[in-house]
């Protein structure tokens, strides 16, 4: 019973994703010109970005909490969240690029949404470089937390401002959340789309937890070795 009590949400997440993969590939989808069957990518591509933003929000939260209480665990959590977010961001870029090649005819187009995503990835890669360049633990934690907060706010402003500056984006979902507004999505797709978002977010949270445990164990081993 303890297994169920501790892991019920993982089981639900896996079941949802199995449903999403099967349903996403098999269920009826609207036949739109140019997009055609690639519309099914929405269950995967958009899910990746949602999970990334969710995990990066958590990273911001842990960074803020680190600057409040200075607990080393919070710093490790923030760093783990950024690494997990980068995994989902990379997957989001890859699924997006495949989609772009099949609908817009090129892997990358000069579009405010795409550039915003690229800047976000650069920011968090820079965060990892910063962590690598400082040796002392608490100094590293403090600088990383400060940069994380600074960068997150500017990144958020950026992805909100940038699309409004240019003449518009060919990427759907110009205002607010992509594909979430009621008029945007065919009702046939909603029954897979919403579970897909939830499923990927559960998966992201699970990945984050596993990754965090690995990194914490590694850190403990390092500290034991240092004390010898």
């Amino acid at each position: 019973m303890t297994f169920l009590r501790n892991n019920w949400w993982k089981i639900i997440g896996v079941l949802i994703l199995l449903y999403v993969i099967a349903g996403g590939l098999l269920f009826e989808a609207p036949q739109l010109p140019v997009i055609r069957e690639t519309v099914r990518n929405i269950y995967f591509h958009v899910g990746m970005w949602f999970s990334m933003m969710f995990i990066l929000f958590m990273s911001l939260f842990f960074s803020l909490r680190y600057l409040r209480y200075f607990r080393p665990d919070d710093d490790l959590k923030a760093a783990t969240a950024v690494k997990t977010g980068l995994v989902f961001g990379t997957l989001g870029l890859l699924t997006g690029m495949i989609w772009a090649q099949n609908t817009w005819g090129s892997y990358w187009v000069n579009d405010p949404k795409l550039n915003g995503a690229a800047v976000g990835m650069l920011t968090y890669l820079a965060y990892m470089v910063l962590r690598g360049s400082v040796d002392e633990h608490d100094k590293k934690a403090r600088l990383a937390a400060v940069y994380n907060i600074f960068a997150f706010v500017l990144f958020f402003v950026f992805i909100m401002i940038l699309p409004r500056l240019s003449q518009g984006s060919i990427h759907p979902g110009i205002e607010g959340n992509p594909a979430l507004s009621a008029g945007d999505l065919d009702p046939r797709m909603r029954k897979v789309f919403f579970p897909a978002i939830a499923g990927w977010m559960i998966m992201a949270w699970w990945l984050f937890r596993v990754y965090y445990r690995i990194l914490r164990l590694r850190k403990n081993i390092d500290e034991l070795n240092e004390n010898d």
Partner: peptide, 20 residues
């Protein structure tokens, strides 16, 4: 200024923030 290899770090950290 608190980290090693400052110039690279300075450029890498500031580009994404200055870009908007």
């Amino acid at each position: 200024s608190k980290a090693r290899n400052n110039f690279t770090l300075m450029a890498v950290l500031s580009f994404p923030l200055v870009l908007p």
